[in-house]
Every structure is written in C-alpha cells, then in structure tokens.
Amino acid sequence: MSFLEIDHVSFTFPRHDKPVLTEIDLHFDQAVITALVGPNGSGKTTLTKLMIGVLRPACGEIRLDGRPLVEYSLGEIGRRVGYVFQNPDLQLFCGTVAEEVGFGLANRGCQRETVEERVAFYLDYFELKDYGGVFPLHLSQGEKQRLAIAAVLANEPLFLVLDEPTVGLDAYRKRLLEDYLKKISRSGRGMVLVSHDTAFVDRVAERVVILENGRVIEDSGRKGKAADEA
C-alpha cells in the first residue's frame, strides 16, 4: 500500500466542458521524491490540489494512508501532508515571519519552547533570521518563497507536495532546498514536487511523472531524460 494513492481520477472545473485531468492512476510512496512535470496547463497544479483535498475529483478515488481522502478534514490532511502553493502570497497570512513559521505548531498545542526552537532553526536554515519581525508580504518574492517552504517544513508533515518550490530562488538557495529535501527523503518521508526547473528535477527527483493535456504520458523511475523532454 502506498502512502498516497490516486485511482482513475478525472477532474473538470465547474461550468467547463473540457476535463483538466483524465483517468489519472498514480501511487506515491514514502521516502521517494517524485517530480511532476509537463507543459503549462497540463493539469499539474490541479492534480496537487486534488492530492490535498482542496479540490474533489469528479470521478475516481484518492486515498491517503489507506483511507479515502474525503474522510479527512482539511486540518487532518494538513497534519499529514505539507503543501507549498505555487504562489506563496496565497499561504502567508500571519502578522510576522516568525509567527508564520510557528503558526501550525502553536495552534496544534506544541510547547512554547519547542515552537521557538523550531522557528529559530527554520529561520536560520532558510536565512530569514533577520526578518523574524517583518510582515511576510513585505518580503521579496524569493524570501516569500523560502518562508512558505519553511512554514510548511516546520510542521514536519509525513509527506510533502511542493508546487514550483524553486521559483524566485537563486542557485545557492536552490542548493539549500535540495539538501533539505534530500534529508527529509532520507528520513523516510516522501514528496511530490511540481517544477519546470529541469536541472533541479534532475538532481533531486528519483521518479519523474510527465503530464500532458491532463493525462500521464510517462511515469519513469529514471531521472534526467524524461524531465528534459518535458
């Protein structure tokens, strides 16, 4: 049994005729980094939103840890799966950067010392230490992206879904993110990352799934070649 299972899933937006996704069959295991690649409008982001229960499939079923996703509340999904939105502005909602990183932990009843310790670690790792008291939407695009990733990672979810995590990051910060994602993977947690950054996919992903026109056209364990083709 895989951690996240997508079986025969199709999806069409309300009041639209053309399906965005058709008959998707994908299983994602823990400890594997999977890249979801494909041209603009191929349904990558829609698929990730289905994975985290923000959208519901028109037909087919998605199971998380063996249970149908529809049986989970968004909060329960959020505790298991961390999701980094394509646009970080959509997921930053706190008054300060430090609050943003610690929000999930603080609201799940973690001890204050634990929250502060973890916030300090993630601010330091993603080089946001100097911005702890800054309003998140005042940060630059790259800083917002790092903050969105840090805020999700601080929750230590069992599985990660990252939609375009490298947008706005410089080469050095991409390397930092790469190291951290590999570390997470080694600790037994799986992830799906959507990216157009072929070099990043090449270095990080162990499995590459290519979507085109809402269908999976290739699902390969090989890395590099498939991503380049997309």
Binding site: S73, L74, G75, G78, F103, G104, N107
Partner: peptide
C-alpha cells in the same frame, strides 16, 4: 482559511472563543 487548515489546524474542532481570536488576528 484553506491555508490555515493546511497547516494542520482543524477549524471545526477549535473552540469558538479561540476561533474568534484566531480570525481577528488573521
């Protein structure tokens, strides 16, 4: 509201008082 829940906060289970404080801060 979606982003808050995806950080693992089950809004349905949060007591009303705490929920109002959380919303007013957001």
């Amino acid at each position: 509201v979606t982003a808050v829940q995806l950080r693992g906060v089950d809004l349905k289970k949060v007591p009303w008082g705490q929920k109002i404080t959380m919303y007013s801060r957001l």
